[in-house]
C-alpha cells in the first residue's frame, strides 16, 4: 500500500501532507494579497523569481566567468605571483551588492519624495558609493601588495 503510494506520488506521504499544509496557508494569504492588484502582484511575485534566477544570477555569472577566463589566459600564476583574481572579485562583488541594495538612493529613483519626506537630499549617496567602492578596491590592492611581497620573500627563501 505504502509502496504503491510512493511509486505513484514520488515521495513519502508526510511530504504530501507538508506540501498541502504549506500551499493551503500560502493560498489563504494569497486570497488577501491578490485582490489588491491581481496583475501587479502576479507580475511582482513571478517577476521577482525571474529577475533573480534568469537575470541577476546569469548576469553576474557571465561577468565572473569573463574575469576567470581573462585570468586563466594569462597563464597559470607563477610564483612569486599570488593569484590576483579574488582581489578583483571581492571588491567588485561588495560594491555591486551595495549598489543593488541602495540603488534607489544612489541612482535617485525617488529623490524628490525622499527630499520632501525627510528634508534631506539624495545627492550624497552616489558620491558615498563611489568613495566606498574606491576604498574597497584600495584595500584590496593593499592586501594584494602585502600578499605579493610575502610570497616573493617565501620564494626567495630556500624551502625547508
Amino acid at each position: 500500500m505504502m509502496r504503491r503510494f510512493r511509486a505513484r506520488y514520488g515521495a513519502h506521504p508526510l511530504h504530501l501532507l507538508t506540501m498541502l499544509a504549506s500551499l493551503a496557508l500560502a493560498g489563504y494569504a494569497a486570497l488577501k494579497l491578490v485582490p489588491a492588484n491581481p496583475l501587479g502582484i502576479a507580475v511582482w511575485f513571478i517577476g521577482a523569481a525571474i529577475a533573480h534566477d534568469l537575470l541577476l544570477l546569469p548576469l553576474y555569472s557571465v561577468v565572473d566567468s569573463g574575469l576567470v577566463h581573462a585570468w586563466r589566459r594569462r597563464g597559470a600564476p607563477e610564483l612569486p605571483q599570488a593569484p590576483w583574481i579574488n582581489y578583483l572579485r571581492v571588491p567588485l562583488a561588495l560594491s555591486a551588492v551595495l549598489l543593488l541594495l541602495y540603488a534607489p538612493l544612489i541612482l535617485q529613483f525617488a529623490g524628490h519624495r525622499y527630499a520632501v519626506t525627510t528634508s534631506m537630499s539624495t545627492d550624497p549617496y552616489l558620491e558615498h558609493w563611489l568613495l566606498i567602492t574606491a576604498a574597497l578596491f584600495g584595500l584590496s590592492a593593499l592586501g594584494y601588495a602585502v600578499r605579493l611581497r610575502r610570497s616573493r620573500r617565501q620564494h626567495a627563501r630556500p624551502s625547508g
Binding site: 494569504a29 494569497a30 488577501k32 494579497l33 489588491a36 492588484n37 496583475l39 501587479g40 502582484i41 507580475v43 511582482w44 511575485f45 541602495y102 534607489p104 538612493l105 529613483f109 525617488a110 519624495r113 525622499y114 519626506t117 525627510t118
Partner: peptide
C-alpha cells in the same frame, strides 16, 4: 525604506501578506 513606492498595492498589504 528608500521611499521608492513602486509596489503593486499598499506597502503594508504586500509586505504582510507576502
Amino acid at each position: 525604506i528608500q521611499y521608492w513606492y513602486v509596489f503593486p498595492a499598499s506597502f503594508y498589504t504586500v509586505h504582510l501578506y507576502g
